[in-house]
Amino acid sequence: MSAVQLTVIGRFTCREGERPLLLAPRAERLMAFLSLARRPVRREELTGALWGDQPDERAAGNLRSTLWRLRRLAEQPLVEASDGYVAVAGHVRVDLWDVEAGPSPDVEQRLLAGELLPGWDDGWVEVERERFRQLRLHALEDLCAGHRRSRRFADALRLGLVAVACDPLRETAHREVIEVHLEEGNVVEALRQYDSYRRLLHSELDLAPSPAMRAVIDDYLDRVVGDDPSFRPATAPVIRASRGPAG
């Protein structure tokens, strides 16, 4: 019996083994809502969230017909309904749940897939999208740091730059990228990353990077220069992390 994989990170998809399951828009929204709820949901809550702009009788009819179709779409029903509650069937794997459960062999692939249900403008999606955004950023930074400590710099940089792209004003993401460059010995790249962030922060919020951010580069340069103030990297002059606003 083929496993069913439901994907809500990035583009919504549903597959039974290698076979894509083509869900109608109503069924997609129902499966997405149940996946984001992470629990059995009362029928009244479902009809209110998905068809709240329709009369109660019509909304209930939409739910019944959608459930009927979902039970017949795959070898096993995709949903379980009993005692007035509806839930994702136990044999269905949801990528969001896998990411939230902790490290797994494909966690990086899932984190790189994008945000939660991009393009969906339902209120119940937007709340969970922000929750996932925070989880994703922390996970990307943790994985970046782990690869850096293992000296897998290319992988670390790839994850760190995705975190920066997700939230360009997030200092900890930029700091991880800077530390990767420094561990590789790419001081100029680290300074470029710092200066780019400094200018953006000043432009958007009229703020300067934190002392902890500046200390990352300054401490590194102190270790490299040591007692030889005449030392200069071959690629560029040594400069301190600028403490003032962008020029």
Rank of each mutant, 00 (worst) to 15 (best):
S2E: 14
S2C: 12
V4D: 02
Q5N: 12
L6A: 05
T13E: 15
E16A: 14
G17C: 09
A24F: 11
P25E: 11
R26N: 14
A27V: 03
R29L: 12
L30H: 03
A32D: 02
L34K: 03
R42T: 07
T47L: 09
A49Y: 03
L50P: 00
L50R: 00
G52P: 05
P55K: 03
R58D: 14
R58Y: 13
A59V: 05
T66I: 05
L67D: 04
P77R: 09
L78R: 04
G84D: 11
A87I: 06
V88K: 03
H91A: 12
L96E: 04
L96T: 03
W97M: 11
D106Q: 12
D106L: 14
V107Q: 12
E108T: 12
Q109F: 07
Q109H: 13
L112P: 01
L117E: 04
G119D: 07
W120L: 13
D122F: 11
G123V: 06
E126V: 14
E128T: 10
E130K: 15
F132K: 02
L135Q: 13
L137C: 02
H138F: 09
A139S: 15
L140Q: 02
E141L: 11
E141V: 15
A145W: 10
A145V: 14
A145T: 10
G146W: 06
H147G: 01
R149M: 12
R151W: 07
R151C: 07
F153C: 05
D155P: 08
L157G: 07
L157I: 08
L161F: 06
V162F: 05
A165F: 01
D167V: 07
R170Y: 14
R170L: 10
E171M: 01
T172P: 06
A173E: 00
E176V: 03
E176Y: 10
V180S: 03
E189M: 14
L191W: 14
Q193D: 11
S196C: 13
Y197E: 01
Y197P: 02
L200D: 07
L200H: 06
S210Q: 09
R214S: 10
V216Y: 09
D218R: 09
D219Q: 15
D222T: 15
R223G: 11
V224R: 15
D228I: 06
D228Y: 08
T235H: 13
P245D: 04
